[in-house]
Design a protein around this nucleic acid. Sequence first.
DNA 1: GTATTATCTAAGTCT
DNA 2: TAGATAATAC
Length: 768
Amino acid sequence: MNLLEQLNEEQQFAVKQTEGPSMIIAGAGSGKTRVLTYKIAYLIHRGVDPFSIMALTFTNKAAREMQNRIQQLVESTEARNVWMGTFHSIFARILRIESEKIGFPNNFTIYDTDDSKSIIKKIVKEQQLDDKVYKASNVLGRISSAKNNLISAAEYNNNPELTQADKDSGRGKMGMIYTLYQERLRKAASMDFDDLLFNTNVLLRDFPDVLIKYQRRFKYFLVDEYQDTNHSQYLIVKRLAAQNENLTVVGDDAQSIYAFRGANIQNILNLNKDYPQLNTYKLEQNYRSTKNIVGIANAIISQNKKQIHKTIWTENSTGEKITLHSTLSDNEEGSLVARTIFDIKNNEQAKDSEFAILYRTNAQSRSIEEGLRKMNIPYRIFGGLSFYSRKEIKDILAYFRLVINPHDEEALLRVINYPKRGIGQTSIEKLRIEANRLNISLWALLERLESNPIIARSAALTILEFVNMIRAFRLDLNIKNAYELAEHITKHSGIYSTMYHAKDEDEGVMRFENMEELLSAIKEFSELENDEVGAGNIRTLSEFMQDIALHTDADEKSKIDGEYVTLMTIHASKGLEFPYVFIVGLEENLFPSLLSLNSRAEIEEERRLFYVAITRGEKRVFLSYSESRFKWGNLQYSEPSRFIEELDPQYIDDQTSDRILTAKPTIKTSAEAKSKASFYEKPKSNEVKAPEAVPSNLRRMSQSHNGTSTDQSESIQVGMEVFHDRFGRGKVLTLEGIGADRKATVFFNNSGTKNLLLKFAKLKILKQ
DNA sequence: GTATTATCTAAGTCT
DNA sequence: TAGATAATAC
């Protein structure tokens, strides 16, 4: 088969450029994955040893799919010898091989964000610092960005700029926490996500023999989604590829959406400085979407200042315009989406799997779900609370982690008294302090507890029993396969019976089923052929845990490749495509996020996110926003996103005005009505139009400051009868706070007592 | 040491 | 609203 025949001219050039550095700027839907896949197939076809190719993808799922595709293209299974996966998983693999060089055992644990936060909380407490000032997520974010820029704890403390910035913000102990955090991780023989990349850099920097070993082994490097790499990842690639510079990077600056976790767009913009002889290719033909979708996407992204110029075009049909809907509440938005899907399924014979509903935040999935459930539409949510982050699953996994690496303190603390065996907080605290004093891991202390009893004898005996149990499990690590050992552990640790007896409660049933699901997943894993170690070898529990440590939601295999509508965040949708795409919650402070409004750069990232969302669509895209939304238990009013005002009207089928006229004619304030009059809407002859001289964005600003009917809320008094959009008639029971914080407790005839922020509630006074 | 109840507070995207 | 933590009772 001639591989090149199936590519357009520019794609062919990119594929044929096998030697030297090249950068492929690939617009959305331009066949980026296709080029990567074909390039690897082309290399293999030309006799390059698959073992010498390293391909770094954004998800492990993408790697798997690409690998399968390459196998088909080269008609050989040798394609599986290409090293393909995410940065984190590929380099975790290399770190395990080389672990002793950097002073880690090869069974080191990978800590997730929860583990990391938990350590930081403990450090803050032990150091008697204020946990409001040193919030775990903030501290971790600071440490993370230091690591992504290859600044070690020692370097951090010696960097006057960083330490001064911390002092100025009242967080002078940040550097100390960083130091203690790293000590804690090392004692627990554990690395966090950033350490995987940081330590890879240390390995390649400080051990020239190791660097040379991998430079000799890998001759071709391909990096997907290069716009989302951070400095640490950039340096790894640069070091490894330095020998022969056969480096291909593929990316699209317009789709860079991970700056918040350290992605550096300069990696793509400055690549030609590192490689002056860089070959650059631009893929601009879109094969995915209709002209309308491509057109509106181009119009959106053109509002950003920073970008590499390109013109995305398509030969596809014009298609339908992009539909814009608005609803009164988040629940109604869910129903509307469900109804629309239902109609399209009927009218166009579409399948459930052709639909995706994309949102900015995971919390939005709830109202959408409700709508789908009511219409009996099958759906599947990706992200949110994933299977592996459920409590009961984490408890079981903690046992596995502890058996594999007993120094893993987070795991130890999680299970030492689960199921309850009478080892309470007091004993554990004493032991932790002692272990700290001796500068050894908690497990090391427990192992020598017999000769050094510092706690009550009875507690010490129970602990000894626990230690012996874990030791016994450890003996089976390489003897039993993953499933046999996992089952053995759940039975003998008491987890199984504890869960079995808790089945009476509703929650318990689900937990028990989840445990069974975990075990059956492990069983499936155990029974897979182990082609890497060869026949006769078993797949161990350690291997299973390595498999899931860097498991992402996008990697989740669809159990049954059944028919369902896909729900996910826009971030998670990167790289995917669907015939029908719904983008919901286009509201100011939600999308763009409230937290992104501080800088132009952040808003541009949100806009790129919007661009990514729109360009997932093949046939049709539906946009919607709601005028109110439940957040943390209370109703908040919302205005349409600024991105809606930016939409180019020629591509839009605006359905919002119908709703305004039919749905809520009485309660609407004039300010709200005005906000609907966005510029693409044709003024009706009998309507008063906002003066042209005032730009729409200014109009919105003034409105959000004083337009939200504070006029009425200020005169509300206890005892008044009031009307609320959602709850109806009610009586004010109490009032507290002033200005923006003014709250009321209102008893509603139909929905009972509610606490409302007057700023948002827009109560209407019925009777004084 | 454990179970129950009361109080507090969170704001986002992901490896 | 919900999950985590603190306070209280047993």
